[in-house]
Amino acid sequence: MGLKRPRSLAQSDNELLKEVQKHVRLNLQLWGTTKEAGERLASLYSVETQHLEELITRTLTLGESNSALMLAARGTGKSSLVNTVLKRLEESGTLTEGMVVRLSGLLQTDDRQALKEITCQLKLENATADKVFGSFAENLAFLLESLRCGSKETSKPVIFILDEFDLFCHHHNQTLLYNLFDVAQSAQAPICVLGLTCRLDVIELLEKRVKSRFSHRQIHLFPPDKFDPYYLDTFKQLLELSASFPFKEFSRKWNLNVARLVEDNNVIKVLKRLHNTTKDIRALKTLLLLCVCQLSDEQPQLNGQMFVHAQSLFVSEAKINMLQGLSVLQLCLVYTLFRAGTTS
């Protein structure tokens, strides 16, 4: 009969394993939204970051109205990069001169909801409570006019961040976009309109009157194609335990093991295949999550075989996985129901 580990030791190992899985899953979930990830993106896209920072700074300091689109694939880090630029301007004191309005095409599905959200974020509900406006343009003009303190030169600048910009193009008559671009072009008030989208053909979705008022300034974020070092560095950052991890000795051993994984042939083979298939970081996060789920008391560290097994799960069909483990009788019932559904 084998020797059993003490109950306290087994319980401690179980708590350690849960803490590791919790920390790594949280890292996978928050990657791209943290300050560290934003600074990394800013250094990776240094030229685009400088262009965006200068664009917003001119609106905040000089009262210059601008409009631009940031185009990149999903998961690239568009929102994180914008947040990093705004954070830098806030730390330098430049952002205190203006206000930031964030809209999302997923949340503000029509112009009425968008205008209500703009009013709420500008904190002008009391100013518009007893007002009756004849049109959308009149309402928006009143909101921007309310931010003025004296002359046009002393108006408070507003930065409009339109996430999922392509969805705003499907609003009725594109009234919101028309009025925002019209204010920016005619310099009625100092505003900067920045749209974030993953559609490269978004300009073709704009109506002619809207397109004529847009500056056609576009900022493209192209992810680097190099597997080494960019992709491998991202792989290590997703798995490494931070300094806040409570078990310091285990954290040191874990991070050393992660560094050794990039030298494992099985791991490199799996990562290169995924990289050649898609460069979307979200796919890498899904693969790593499948690996982390395989951790156990007997195997508390990641190894190459876990990545091979995770790859087989990653590329397999979801319907086939659902049928695995069914008995012959259950498979016959599934087949009968399928045939009945197709013939009816």
Rank of each mutant, 00 (worst) to 15 (best):
L3N: 05
R5N: 04
S8A: 14
A10T: 13
Q11K: 13
Q11T: 09
D13I: 00
N14F: 03
H23D: 12
R25Y: 15
L26V: 01
K35S: 08
K35A: 13
E36L: 11
G38V: 09
S43L: 12
E48Y: 02
T49D: 02
I56S: 05
T57R: 15
L62G: 02
L62I: 05
G63S: 09
E64D: 10
L69C: 03
L71T: 09
L71R: 02
A72Q: 08
K78V: 04
S79F: 00
V85G: 02
K87H: 09
R88H: 12
R88E: 07
L89W: 06
T94S: 11
L95I: 03
T96K: 12
L103F: 10
L103C: 08
Q108M: 13
T109H: 02
T109S: 06
L115W: 02
L115M: 15
N126Q: 13
A127S: 11
A127N: 10
F133Y: 13
F133V: 03
G134F: 00
S135I: 04
S135E: 04
E138Y: 00
E138R: 02
L140M: 15
L144M: 14
S146V: 00
C149L: 08
I159M: 08
F165Y: 15
Q174P: 05
Q174Y: 04
T175C: 02
F181Y: 15
P190E: 13
I191C: 05
C198E: 04
R199H: 04
R199E: 13
E207H: 08
S215E: 06
H216V: 00
P224F: 12
D225W: 08
Y230W: 13
L232V: 14
D233Y: 05
F235W: 08
K236T: 11
Q237S: 10
L241V: 08
L241D: 09
S242Q: 14
A243S: 15
F245P: 04
F245G: 06
K248M: 05
R260D: 14
V262G: 02
N266G: 01
K272C: 08
L274I: 11
T278C: 13
D280M: 03
R282Q: 12
A283K: 11
K285H: 01
T286G: 01
C291G: 05
L295W: 06
L295D: 06
Q301K: 08
L302E: 10
F307N: 05
A310Y: 03
A318I: 09
A318N: 05
L323H: 10
G325Q: 05
L326G: 01
S327F: 03
S327I: 02
L329I: 07
Q330M: 11
L331S: 01
V334M: 10
F338C: 09
G341Q: 07
S344F: 07
